[in-house]
Structure formats: C-alpha cells, structure tokens
C-alpha cells in the first residue's frame, strides 16, 4: 500500500503542481513536528508497526507532505485523516513530515 501511494503521489502531485512541491517542506521545524506528532502516535504506533493503521515512520518527507495535503483537500478520502489534516497548515505538515521521516520504521 505504501509503495502504491508513494508512486501515486509522486506521479500525480509532482506532475500536476510542480511549483508547489518545491516548497512542500518550507518552514519545517523538527521540534514543532515532534510536539505535533503526539496527536498522530495515539493511532500510528510509535514503534512503526502496522496492526490495522498504516505505519508512517521513515516515510520520505515529500511523499508524506503530499499525502497530508491530499487528505487536506479531500483528494484522498478517509474521515479520520481528513479531519486530522484539515487543521494542519503547510508549516505544520512540513514539520511533521521531517519529524516522521527521521523516525525508524519497524523493519
């Protein structure tokens, strides 16, 4: 599933709005990302295991940010993640992206 989305998001977001991807990670702040991640790890296990909710540790930061923007604008549709993403601004998404990219995944 991860591979599929990785490909899908690079393909669609990268091609359709190239200008935007250049600054997807602008304003990223690791410390802020760590604080914001508190909301995520209630569901996405901090150990990076998937027991029913996908693991998000170690995802490429740009892919991560693209996915979050897709939930935010409703291109990816899942009620929980749409709600989560709806109140995150670009800087918050960027901060989360760099934070989770640096977290070890289970493998």
């Amino acid at each position: 599933m991860r591979t599929f989305w990785t490909f899908f998001f690079f393909a669609t977001i990268f091609c359709s709005s190239h200008a935007k991807t250049d600054n997807l990670l602008d304003g990223a702040d690791l410390g802020y990302g760590e604080y914001l991640s508190g909301e995520c790890v209630t569901c996405h296990s901090k150990d990076g295991v998937d027991k029913g909710i996908p693991a998000i540790n170690g995802l490429d930061a740009e892919v991560f940010a693209s996915i979050m923007h897709a939930y935010k604008i409703g291109d990816m549709d899942h009620p929980v993640m749409m709600m989560v993403a709806s109140r995150l601004d670009e800087e918050q998404i960027a901060s989360l992206a760099v934070y989770f990219a640096a977290m070890p995944d289970a493998n």
Partner: peptide
C-alpha cells in the same frame, strides 16, 4: 474495526513504552 485494533496498539505503546 481493523483501525481500532491499530489504535489499541498505538495508544498502549504511547502510554507504556
């Protein structure tokens, strides 16, 4: 339902490890 299993794993890891 499967999400809830993931959540249980997530929150208990978050609390206790």
């Amino acid at each position: 339902y499967q999400e809830s299993i993931g959540w249980y794993e997530g929150i208990t890891t978050d609390m206790f490890s």
